[in-house]
Design a protein around this nucleic acid. Sequence first.
DNA 1: TGTTTTATACTGACTAGTCAGTTCAGAATT
DNA 2: AATTCTGAACTGACTAGTCAGTATAAAACA
Lengths: 197, 197
Amino acid sequence: MTDGRTRRREDTRQRLFVAAVDLIAEQGFSATTVDDIAARAGVAKGTVYYNFESKTVLFEELLRHGIGLLTADFRAAVDGLPPLEALGALVRAQLEYIRRYRAFAQLLLSEMWRTNREWQQTLRLLRGEAIAVIADTVQAGVDSGDLPADLDVRTASSALFGVGLVVAVDWLVFSPERPIDEVQESLLGIVRRVART
Amino acid sequence: MTDGRTRRREDTRQRLFVAAVDLIAEQGFSATTVDDIAARAGVAKGTVYYNFESKTVLFEELLRHGIGLLTADFRAAVDGLPPLEALGALVRAQLEYIRRYRAFAQLLLSEMWRTNREWQQTLRLLRGEAIAVIADTVQAGVDSGDLPADLDVRTASSALFGVGLVVAVDWLVFSPERPIDEVQESLLGIVRRVART
DNA sequence: TGTTTTATACTGACTAGTCAGTTCAGAATT
DNA sequence: AATTCTGAACTGACTAGTCAGTATAAAACA
């Protein structure tokens, strides 16, 4: 499973992911060419097609990979915590993720609300998985009385997800000189205020 | 000035704007072809190039037009109001704008945080104009003591702008069956809570 | 008033170029 | 020996932009 060959191949795929995510974050999916991706990754074009069925499939697997990591971080963050603390942990996990994978976050922000694209269904599904973790936490908070009973769980969860994304990426793009911890603090402050029943 | 010719031409340009905004909101700038835009607008491809220098210029003028309307709405909304009420008026104006021009809002959300695109400079500038209105209001609130003195005006303004956009578009895309007034109310509630010193 | 001229608006076939995807013999790696 | 990657050539579909020609509203003229 983790013999030399598998590792080598995994490495190539990883390099292709990194190259693709950077380019697509900057230019968008359509404006990014397969030749560009191969060149940036330092591999031949044929290698792209040896490792991925098509440009679209590469992108879909990239989405799966990236959001999979985020969902895993979310799950690990809330594990065992009571609702209110879990909520804070989610915000921290999201911001930390965005700090580490800023290009992917930027890409996500740009492609998240598109309609009529072939990979849109995939993205919608993956988004649902990540938000489900938030929703479970919010639901637990409502059930335990830590959050307002009249809070609409679905809406609150997707709003929380989107707001974290947009505030952090906005910061990264338009005020990159500032430390992102400040965003984290102000976001946490806002969430705490809103959470107060 | 408003003879038959001018009116006809203005009409064509308007139809091209509408066609372009719908298609680009759905698919993005690069994935939208000039042929598509022309077909949707019901004109020949040559007409696009008779009215606009290039696809990019068409898009830039579209951005100018759309954000110009938003900025004007913002200015009208805050006119003469004291800071806190002006802030609420801004949220209402933004939501109303998004409700009316939802495709443009979607487009804005998708293209706002891109880097390395030829029209990026234009978009950055226009965004600055719209946010300046918010920033003036927030600054007035800080000066008058209605808002926390330690509030970072620039950050708060761009966050407010981005959050309104993302929450509303998210709602439109993922929960279109719900009335948008609810978003407006919950957004206003959040802003009020955060504004409290 | 009716007729000719002109400027403006539009048309759509065409060009020159781009890009996803294919092919494959051979090289490198394990 | 088997797997993974290379690299360059190729195809065909698609796309931004062009341009010679057409249509027409209004101005100029008779």
